[in-house]
Design a binder for these strands. Structure first.
Lengths: 208, 208
DNA sequence: CCTACCGATCGGTAGG
DNA sequence: CCTACCGATCGGTAGG
């Protein structure tokens, strides 16, 4: 029951925001009375806390799978970004809830995410810095700031896809041009010369 | 008085969200009583509407100035992006309010922004497509989707700078590495070969 | 622009 | 997990 409440809370917090969602309305969707919900969570704030922790840990737990399953038809990098997107795309309210929490209480959420994400963050930073010592990744790139901007595009594209589609007259189908362009931007601004990397890949594939 | 209320409303809606802000609290910051505020705006929803319209028109009205003042020390493109950022950076709650509105009611806000932004949007799309016919801008770029992603980075960097700084361990000073990297990403993923463009510029400057 | 006031809903508790 | 209930606050109105 507890996790069912949390899952519904993420939906409603994501759609309408924390202050726009009454615990009454959450209780209704899981078909119990309000005081019963407050038996599982001492307060609305506690439910919020458990919900964001649940979302973060779900995401971090899927990261290894997202990174390893990432070699499909596309080249490896694009495939990683797309599986990252697809995690949030499976349920856009995850991205909306995450964004709203960052707006509502930047400090707390920042610390929370940092704690769970830091090993992965370090891994990617190291990978980028290694590529910068070689010739594959652009030297005038700030690894941490780069990762942050890509994450903003990922979360933003999913969470605000509806509004953005209207504004820029894009088709609102989620896996459409928006995501392709996001992948392209992330790729082109990361690697030194796409051609060189592509050639390397193809050469390697040919010799394999 | 009306515009003073609107300005304070943007602050508070941006900080705490629409549902997290009582009209009572807005009335207090402008030092009147609640019913007096409701004399200017029939309802809280009407205040919301006028506030977002005020913000959008303010932004659109500054666009010409942002685009023409844009030739400073930096190259033209970077300068345009940075003055775009600086409009929201002057007051981060503008960006927060805009983002929150897109989350709360994507359809209405989408239409509203589209209406006021479409001439500017068309201008930039035309500029990009022209560059694509030439050799300056990458041909595998979706103009509308590109503009959308850049706008997401601009708004996101400003609105969620605090949380993102904590997560990715970046200095929280606003005009720091985050914005530089955003400009770099937007630039590198737009132009075909930065070197070529740079050389052209320098050549032109030399012959001038 | 104010005082006085309203019904509805909010988060939360008592007690079982 | 429930019924019954609470004080506080919400958006909004009457009437001046």
């Amino acid at each position: 029951m507890k996790t069912r409440i949390i899952r519904e809370a993420i939906q409603l917090f994501g759609e309408r925001g924390f202050d726009g969602t009454s615990i009454q309305s959450i209780a209704e969707t899981v078909d119990i009375r309000k005081p019963s919900l407050l038996y599982h969570f001492k307060s609305k704030e506690e439910l919020r806390d458990e919900a964001i922790k649940y979302l973060i840990s779900r995401w971090v737990n899927e990261l290894p799978r997202l990174l390893t399953n990432a070699v499909s038809g596309y080249d490896r990098f694009s495939s990683i970004i797309m599986s990252l997107v697809s995690f949030f795309l499976k349920d856009a309210n995850r991205a909306r809830f995450a964004l709203r929490e960052m707006l509502d209480r930047p400090g707390e959420i920042g610390e929370l995410v940092k704690l769970q994400l830091s090993p992965w963050n370090k891994m990617i930073v190291d990978y980028i810095e290694l590529g910068q010592k070689g010739e594959t990744i652009r030297k005038d790139l700030n690894p941490r700031a780069y990762i942050m901007q890509v994450m903003l595009m990922v979360l933003g594209s999913v969470a605000m896809g509806d509004a953005a589609s209207v504004i820029f007259e894009l088709d609102s189908e989620p896996s459409g041009a928006r995501i392709d362009e996001l992948v392209r931007i992330a790729r082109e601004s990361l690697f030194t010369q796409p051609d060189k990397v592509e050639q390397k890949k193809k050469k390697k594939a040919a010799t394999d």
